[in-house]
Design a protein around this nucleic acid. Structure first.
Length: 573
DNA sequence: GCCGTTTTCGGCCCGACTGTTTTCAGTCG
């Protein structure tokens, strides 16, 4: 039972209570608890008692009891009772843009609509337009929403969203002089998956910005158009929202639209207690309504007496309390990295030669790249038998003699076999500079066996890094069912680093686990797992994860100089 | 339902846009 599953129970409770027109603050309390749990820095299932749970902000007696119940029984009675009052599928109606709890309930009461299929039927036969508060436009918006939902299940990965937003920002910059523009929302916070793309802009002529935006070639359809806000659908049916504000409000608006929701709520509450009011136009004195700042985002935090809080850690509001104590981490930056520790060549399933990889590493500004081709068992990826690995090591050593200020490290991505043994014998591993271990088979083992398997591998004195530890593939494969407490303990004890795999579909270890693992004293390696030198750039997605996981330069081993790194790698042997 | 350097009771962030209205509710972020 992970945090998002627990959070989902409370989101659903909130939605049902909204239909019942319960006290709105009670509804918000459930939503708040759900949001906090969803992005909590620790797996909730590790909490043992009600008292411990009540220390989570937004979780009081009642919700703590329900969490215990969920952890013990896998379900919550209160939610089950609500599901008996309404058909449970009715919540899926709320997923259609424009439909919220009120309208969904009305559709159920007046037209017996219980699910998306019923909804589509009624809309097609023109029954919906006659309901009070609905009309023709609402009806056709519903049909459009259903079509889009059929096409797009789930959210958008950051690997898809970021390039699109950069493209939009660049083309607007080229068209308009003196333009202030930035991505906002969860994209700016660099979440691994996002709902839609938010962009904020400001310039000398705001009308022109909106007109230029809706004329961009990637725009398929205009959804909403006001004086300060437009929403479009791209040719790929992704929603992009543009907000336009005056220059003197750009910072306040950027703060506001970056969120998270919870971060903003708590920031505003804090502002009020200090006699200020914040909105997207600036920060004001509560009494006189006099504007104090708003052009720069930093000013908002400054006025409140806070250090600047980086967007990547603006999540639960906890960061505000830590900022107040001046205990924010000094987050790692891309430029801190000295090399990449997971890279494939044409010896296994990569496409490039050693020389090409060395050249692109140097060009990128690295001091080293570790070559880590697959081991013998992984036949699908052209895993190397020992002889071939030995040949590769020789070739690497020879190549290094010709290189200046840059080295290729001889490594391997070795399969962790079903019993936790490694896929090469120790006397071969000994020849390598670095060994990455990973699981590519038997994912379905039970939790205890899988955990033991990885922990046993970490005991091997030659294994330095566990690659993509959770094995998840976003939108495709769930993460492995592991006892993370054990994994983190063993990783710290054995000096085995955990990889943050930067491949946008993996982003594994994920942000929450990074933060938790750091508490145990684990070290990390941020690597691309590149199969092609063109993806050397995707390291930035790994840095995003590390920053969201509150990691600092010293937590990550590939910020070390080559010399320091080699010492660290050998220290385990 | 949660929470407290004003409070154990009485508050709880704030504004834009749309569609269907005739002054505003619902939805969204």
């Amino acid at each position: 039972m992970d945090n998002s599953q627990i959070a989902k129970v409370f989101y659903q409770i909130a939605e049902f209570l909204e239909m019942k027109e319960e006290n709105p603050f009670k509804i918000r309390a459930y939503e708040k608890a759900a949001r906090t749990i969803e992005s909590y820095s620790k797996p909730i299932m590790l909490f043992k008692s009600k008292e411990e749970l009540e220390k989570i902000p937004g979780v009081g007696e009642s919700i703590a009891e329900k969490i215990i119940e969920i952890l013990n029984n896998g379900a919550c009675r209160f939610l089950e009772e609500l599901k008996e009052e309404f058909p449970p599928e009715i919540l899926t109606l709320n997923e259609i843009p424009g439909l919220g709890p009120k309208k969904s309930l009305q559709l159920y009461k007046e037209l017996k609509i219980k699910n998306i299929q019923d909804l589509e039927k009624s809309a097609l036969s023109g029954k919906i337009r006659n309901l009070k508060g609905f009309g023709e436009k609402t009806e056709s918006a519903i049909l459009k929403g259903i079509e889009l939902k059929k096409q797009y299940k789930g959210r958008l990965s950051i690997g898809t969203a970021l390039p699109i937003s950069l493209e939009i920002i660049e083309s607007l910059k080229n068209k308009i002089k003196n333009l202030l523009i930035s991505e906002a929302g969860s994209l700016r916070r660099r979440k691994d998956n996002i709902g839609d793309i938010d962009i904020l802009a400001s310039g000398d002529n705001n009308k022109l910005i909106i007109e230029s935006f809706i004329k961009l070639p990637l725009v398929k359809e205009l959804k909403v158009k006001g004086e300060t806000k437009v929403s479009i659908l791209t040719l790929d049916n992704l929603q992009v929202d543009l907000r336009v504000v005056e220059k003197e409000s750009f910072g306040a608006a950027l703060q506001y639209f970056t969120g998270s929701k919870q971060h903003n709520i708590e920031l505003r509450q804090m502002a009020e207690s200090k006699g200020f009011k914040i909105n997207e136009y600036g920060i004001f004195k509560l009494k006189s309504n006099q504007k104090i700042a708003g052009a720069k985002e930093e000013e908002i935090y400054q006025v409140l007496g806070l250090p600047y809080i980086p967007p990547e850690i603006r999540e639960t509001g906890e960061e505000i309390k830590i900022a107040l104590k001046d205990q924010l981490p000094n987050l790692i930056n891309l430029k801190d990295l000295k090399g990449d520790l997971h890279f494939h060549s044409n010896y296994s399933e990569g496409v490039n030669t050693l020389e090409e990889i060395a050249a692109s590493g140097q060009e990128f500004g690295y001091n080293y790249i570790a070559l880590t081709d697959h081991s013998q068992s992984l036949k699908v990826a052209n895993g190397m038998p020992p002889e071939k690995l030995k040949e590769q090591i020789k070739k690497i050593r020879a190549l290094n003699k010709k290189l200046k200020n840059f080295q290729i490290l001889a490594g391997a991505e070795v399969d962790i076999l079903i019993d936790g043994a490694l896929d090469y014998p120790d006397n071969l591993l000994k020849e390598l500079d670095l060994v990455v271990g990973s699981i590519h088979s038997h994912f379905k083992q039970d939790s205890a066996l899988l955990t033991k398997r990885i922990c046993k591998a970490m005991q091997n004195p030659y294994l330095n890094i566990i690659a993509h530890p959770s094995g998840r593939l976003l939108g495709e494969r769930e993460e492995l069912n592991l006892n993370w407490e054990e994994i983190f303990k063993t990783s710290a004890e054995t000096n085995t680093a955990l990889e943050i795999n930067a491949y946008p579909q993996r982003l594994d270890l994920k942000d929450l686990y990074c933060r938790e693992a750091k508490v145990y004293g684990c070290k990390f390696a941020v690597s691309t797992d590149s199969h092609n030198i063109n993806s050397i750039n995707s390291i930035k997605y790994g840095i995003n994860v590390a920053r969201r996981g509150w990691l600092e330069k010293t937590d990550v081993i590939n910020t070390k100089s080559l010399k320091e790194l080699l010492i660290w790698l050998k220290s385990k042997r």
